[in-house]
Design a protein around this nucleic acid. Structure first.
Length: 827
DNA sequence: AGGGATCCG
């Protein structure tokens, strides 16, 4: 391949980027954009200063630097270099520097005008990581003042339309694709699991395809299932590939042995890793992705459908070395419904780190930065910074915030480092921060409890982190040798990176000024200061259930060493979406005593004493609570004397239906309707209407002197209802809206009252023979409405005028009625 | 029963 596709547009790229200073370059994988464009720019001689190529991943930055140096026949670290965390190969004359986005952001803070830099190339910009978006916006700010800076946004799957619209800049596209890939769709049988479908298809594909097969699955679990299915029925070597494997293990799996194989992988093979000799891809169409819940400040891991551009990338993996095929486990119609691109990462993640960095850069209003996408709901991010003591009343960074913002980690871990340093707990704080920020140092956690891993069980650890710190020490003392680490179930690589982070944190903390004098008695205090809202209380001793503040619930890690503690601080909380709904999981646990909590946050451990409804005894009882902010730490429920509070609690339970009143009858409802009707007819009398507020007063009076539901249940409700009215009012009501009407010969009829309707009675015609005139009700002399029924209960007439009825309609219909109901008496 | 892959003087 002498002429890469990118070389065909080289002239155009140089011309455009020199003229417009900003260029979108959309070029497919394998076009050579990452390795060739920097050199093309350098060789043009039109860029004044270093060319920085920003990468989202360290491994990619390092690899591309190597490859670029090789292509240009220079020694790595001279003209071409790289700079990533813990590792760099550059000198002052380096012209092309590959760098990770995080590191570039850090350097921007000390070189805000980008002196000496002529071009910044953002690779894999489509991922829309917040670090890249922020760095890009800052570069644009630099361009406003200085004209020498050139910016390029590069990717295979740029959301071109949106970016071009937002940025108003030129776009260059190289359309070539390496080799054609045939795409088929298969709608999975609903009865079958996705791994069964994938494995069945794999068997067929392996009979025809020449090279290796790559299967995309969302996670480790599905990968394991797929591998099992395949190994049962195929002789071809099958490998699982995911990010938790060591780089060495990953390399061994990827390595081209010249032999056919099947690799079942997570999304890691979509962009991060390139596997040679893939001629077929099976795509489950699924990916696991985090979504941040700003209200609870918790990440949730979802299994989602991939985007169209993601599907295209995955399929493209089959066409790198020859023509290939791709089987998509979804329908063609679903393909058209899929979203074109994923939502930008900057909108999916916890924005508190972005906010902290913006504040450190002097932007308190994110609007000023003109970010392509600005995260919504920043209120919670402000609250996190406030919680950590990083902001002051003017909405800018406090001293603590300024120092914390320089730490290469999340705001919470920066708080851990800052407060740890201030409290003379630097060493422990750095170790904790390293263990929390880096991937788990423990290997194969599937079956073993954390306590069983560390030798010397007599040691009493009150924190998983202390236990892990001890294991990290063991790993270090055996120089991170894989075989030795294996014996302790330790991941040597992760131990090494945790140790590197630890040492970096130590170096940074040593230069941090001591400004505050905390007298923290224990290293766990600084954990509390960094994660005060991650404190949880066990709900019982037998289950893993815990309560967090703000009424949240969760479940602690069953492999934790801290399963006996009642008060627990978690330094990792995440929601896991399951088929049964989301579960909040707490891990990396530390036991916290109330004394330690009180010592760390003096005066915040408050006693509360209030009357509550106790469902188990069905009574109002007194809850004596000890609370830390919104978390109940201790709760004792005791019997109590009746008072105004018990009345209120019981009344509320009557209102919500928990306590049923046995003597609440139809008669009571009738009484209430009569009183309401009376209030309607005589509004100037000021009679109550038994509004919800009136009823609440009735209930409270009923509950006076009581605490138990069973005492309340059999209360004589009617007398309490009546007692809300004065004696005079009661007499007036009896007269104004009588319960019954006398219809002669000592017989009575019930009167029905309804607010907004006529007052009426319902009667058989025979009952009314003695009633010649319409009775008038109460002082207002309201005529009664009669619903007159035939013997068969069917209404004959509804009237307010009985006289008219007897003289008018009755004589007309009487003969017919008398014939039909001849056994009845007729007058 | 079930935890992706990343980054930071």
């Amino acid at each position: 391949m002498s002429q890469l596709p990118i070389h065909q547009v080289a002239e155009q790229v140089i011309e455009t980027v020199v003229r417009d200073k900003l260029l979108l370059l959309s070029a497919p994988t394998g076009s050579g954009k990452s390795t060739c464009v920097p050199g093309i720019l350098l060789d043009s001689g039109k860029i004044d200063g270093k060319i920085i190529v920003i990468q989202p991943r360290r491994a990619a930055a390092k690899f591309l630097a190597h490859h670029t140096a090789f292509l240009r026949s220079v020694k790595l670290g001279s003209e071409v270099g790289y700079s990533i965390r813990h590792d760099s190969k550059v000198n002052k004359d380096s012209k092309i520097i590959f760098m990770t986005d995080g590191l570039f952001l850090q350097q921007l803070k000390s070189n805000p005008q980008l002196k000496g830099i002529g071009a910044v190339l953002f690779d894999e910009f489509h991922e829309r990581r917040w670090q890249m978006d922020l760095a890009f916006s800052l570069c644009r700010k630099v361009q406003e003042k200085q004209s020498h800076l050139h910016i390029m946004l590069m990717s295979a799957t740029l959301d071109v339309d949106k970016l071009q619209a937002a940025l108003q800049c030129p776009l260059i596209t190289t359309e070539v694709r390496n080799f054609p890939v045939d795409i088929d769709y298969l709608i999975p049988d609903r009865q079958k699991k996705i791994w069964e479908v994938a494995a069945n298809s794999a068997k067929k594909i392996m009979q025809t395809t020449k090279g290796s097969l790559l299967i995309f699955m969302p996670g480790k679990y599905e990968i394991m299932k797929t591998v099992n299915e395949l190994q049962r029925s195929l002789k071809v070597p099958v490998h699982a590939l995911h990010g938790q494997l060591n780089p060495q293990e990953q390399d061994r799996i990827i390595e081209n042995t010249g032999q056919q194989k099947i690799i079942v992988s997570t999304n890691i093979a979509e962009t991060s890793l390139t596997i040679p000799n893939i001629t077929a891809v099976i795509d489950s169409g699924l990916v696991r992705q985090n979504a941040y819940d700003p209200q609870r400040q918790i990440n949730t891991l979802y299994t989602k459908s991939i985007s169209q551009s993601s599907a295209e990338q995955r399929a493209g993996r089959a066409g790198r070395t020859s023509a290939g095929q791709c089987l998509r486990l979804w329908s063609k119609s679903e393909q058209t419904r899929k979203m074109q691109h994923f939502e930008p990462e900057i909108l999916r993640c916890d924005p508190s780190e972005l906010l902290l960095q913006c504040l450190a850069l002097g932007f308190s209003d994110l609007e000023e930065l003109n970010l392509i996408d600005t995260p919504k709901e920043l209120d919670q991010a402000w609250k996190v910074l406030e919680l950590l003591g990083f902001t002051n009343s003017q909405g800018s960074l406090s001293t603590a915030g300024i120092h914390a913002s320089k730490m290469p980690c999340s705001p919470r871990l920066a708080a851990l480092l800052y407060y740890g340093t201030q409290a003379d707990q630097m060493d422990k704080a750095c170790t904790y921060a390293a263990l929390i920020s880096e991937p788990s140092i423990i290997l194969n956690r599937n079956k073993k409890k954390l306590t069983d891993l560390v030798p010397g069980k007599e040691l009493d650890f009150s924190s998983d982190l202390d236990l892990m710190a001890e294991m990290l020490f063991i790993a270090k003392s055996c120089k991170f040798q894989v075989q030795e680490c294996d014996k302790y179930s330790l991941n040597a690589n992760n131990c090494r990176s945790a140790d590197l982070a630890r040492m970096q944190f130590l170096r940074l903390c040593e230069t941090m000024p001591r400004l505050q004098n905390f007298n923290d008695m224990h290293p766990h205090c600084c954990l509390l200061r960094a994660f005060p809202d991650y404190l949880a209380k066990r709900r019982d001793s037998s289950s893993l259930q815990v309560s967090l503040g703000n009424q949240l619930k969760g479940e602690i890690d069953r492999f934790s060493s801290q399963k006996k503690a009642t008060l627990i601080l978690a330094t990792s909380i995440a929601d896991i979406a399951t088929s049964l709904g989301a579960k909040t999981k707490l891990s990396q646990l530390t036991a916290i005593s109330p004394e330690l909590l009180d010592h760390t946050f003096p005066g915040e451990l408050l006693s509360k004493d209030e009357v509550i409804w106790d469902p188990s005894s069905k009574s109002a009882r007194r809850a004596q609570q000890s609370c830390f902010r919104s978390l109940i730490i201790e709760e004792k429920i005791v019997d109590c004397e009746p008072d105004a509070q018990t009345e209120q609690v019981l009344a509320n339970k009557i209102i919500d239906g928990t306590i049923k009143l046995n003597k609440w009858s139809e008669k009571l409802d009738d009484w209430i309707e009569r009183v309401r009707k009376c209030a309607e007819i005589y509004p100037d009398k000021g009679i109550i209407t038994y509004s919800p507020q009136d009823l609440e007063i009735v209930y409270m009076e009923m509950c006076s002197g009581l605490t138990k539901a069973k005492e309340v249940r059999d209360m004589d409700c009617l007398s309490y209802l009546k007692n809300l009215l004065s004696w005079d009012e009661q007499c007036f009501i009896e007269d104004a809206v009588p319960e019954n009407i006398d219809i002669g010969n000592g017989k009575k009829l019930r009167i029905f009252y309804q607010v907004g309707k006529e007052i009426y009675v319902r009667a058989f015609i025979q009952q009314l023979f003695d009633l010649k005139k319409t009775p008038l009700i109460g002082p207002a002399r309201i005529p009664l409405t009669f619903e007159i029924l035939a013997p068969n209960h069917r209404p004959i007439q509804v009237t307010k005028n009985l006289e008219n009825f007897w003289s008018g309609l009755y004589p007309e219909i009487k003969p017919a009625l008398a014939r039909r109901y001849h056994k009845h008496q007729w007058i």
